[in-house]
Design a protein around this nucleic acid. Structure first.
Length: 345
DNA sequence: AATACGGGGGA
DNA sequence: TCCCCAGTATT
């Protein structure tokens, strides 16, 4: 039996029943693929259901406010996916009359759709013989064929794509592509795969050469930067507060947060008051109190956000203030959502 | 070619 | 802690 035939056989016997496996609707497949980028199935699942409920068709998604899309995406991370999702829905309506294109090339042209996702949609929905190469596939191929090229080097990316193409099954690309990914997720797992019971163990180079633990090879880890966030939770007598939207580059684009004072180190209270005094846009304040004595360290893949929340009492009614009851309706980062949850006004 | 972009889960 | 997750866009 060939490699691809073994994958297909294993898939037939071991696949999970996942909601997006019961359909070929490009809208649903696309939605699931975007959500599952760098995201575990278990984490994406509730979002998939929420989105289909809120936006049953691509038209519903295209016609929604970005804020609503971001709110539903809240907590899933990599928010550019949500913004691109929304933008692409509009493009599908305007340029493709509501029908997703069926070629790899056209799909790849959609925002947020890269090499992997274009291959996935083309193969799963339209039976186009394009191999998918995701983290699972890198692992399976590097181990089975004993390839130690770094998977995140240009050489490696190119090599694995070609290898994937060479060994794919073009007869049933839909099941094969999902099969090799599922095999990587369930059987050929990152840590302690149970090779003893693996149906592909006889041809596996890494197993034979005892290199399972060292494959795939991945270059360097990211260095993490420390940042110091001071959030100003301003409240007036009507229980109104101030939220602002994050614009420009960087994390959490278009999400909301309390007014932020970023500093190079942990600020003393008088230093903070000095900074506040220089912010002409802020309302006049009466009192200031530190909410969390111990800083909250919110960890992202590239940043540790050392965060303190300050509760400020406004002298007058806040202009354009947001009622505290409404705060939870805005799309916010998890860091802010957690605060809103525990803060009792 | 390198880096930024979230958040959560498992060992 | 560290690594990884159905990767993509930008520099």
């Amino acid at each position: 039996m060939s490699f691809s035939q073994k994958i297909l056989k294993w898939y037939g016997q071991n696949k999970r029943e996942l909601p997006w496996r019961a359909t070929k609707d490009p809208y649903k497949i696309w939605l699931s693929e975007i959500m599952l980028q760098q995201t575990r199935v278990a984490q994406g699942m509730p979002y998939y259901h929420k989105f289909l409920e809120a936006f049953p068709t691509v038209y519903d998604l295209a016609n929604a406010k970005e804020e609503k899309v971001l709110k539903l995406w809240q907590g899933l991370g990599y928010y550019s996916r949500a913004r691109n999702l929304h933008a692409t829905a509009k493009i599908v309506i305007d340029k493709y009359e509501g029908k997703f294109p069926s070629t790899y090339k056209e799909l790849k042209g959609l925002k947020g759709v890269g090499d992997y996702t274009a291959s996935a949609i083309a193969s799963i929905c339209f039976n186009v013989p394009e191999p998918v190469v995701d983290g699972n596939v890198y692992r399976v191929l590097s181990r089975y064929f004993g390839v130690d090229l770094p998977i995140n080097s240009p050489k490696g990316v190119q090599y694995f794509k070609q290898l994937a193409r060479d060994v794919m099954n073009t007869e049933n690309i839909r099941d094969y592509n999902q099969g090799i990914m599922e095999f990587g997720a369930i059987q050929c797992a990152p840590k302690k795969p149970y090779c003893l019971l693996c149906p592909l163990n006889d041809g596996c180079v890494a197993l034979k050469e005892n290199k399972i633990g060292g494959l795939p090879v991945k270059l360097k880890k990211t260095k993490v930067k420390d940042r110091y966030f001071n959030y100003l939770v301003i409240l007036d007598k009507d229980k109104c507060t101030l939220l602002e939207q994050r614009h420009g580059k960087g994390i959490w684009q278009n999400l909301y947060q309390f007014p932020l004072l970023e500093s190079e180190y942990v600020l003393e209270i008088d230093e903070l008051q000095e900074q506040i005094a220089q912010q002409s846009a802020l309302p006049s304040l009466q009192t200031i109190k530190l909410f969390n004595e111990k800083e909250i360290v919110h960890k992202l893949s590239h940043q540790n956000l050392h965060t303190r929340f300050w509760i400020l009492e406004a002298r007058d009614a806040i202009k354009d203030g947001i009622s505290w009851e409404q705060v939870h309706t805005f799309p916010v980062p998890v860091l802010i959502a957690e605060f809103i949850k525990i803060f009792k006004i």
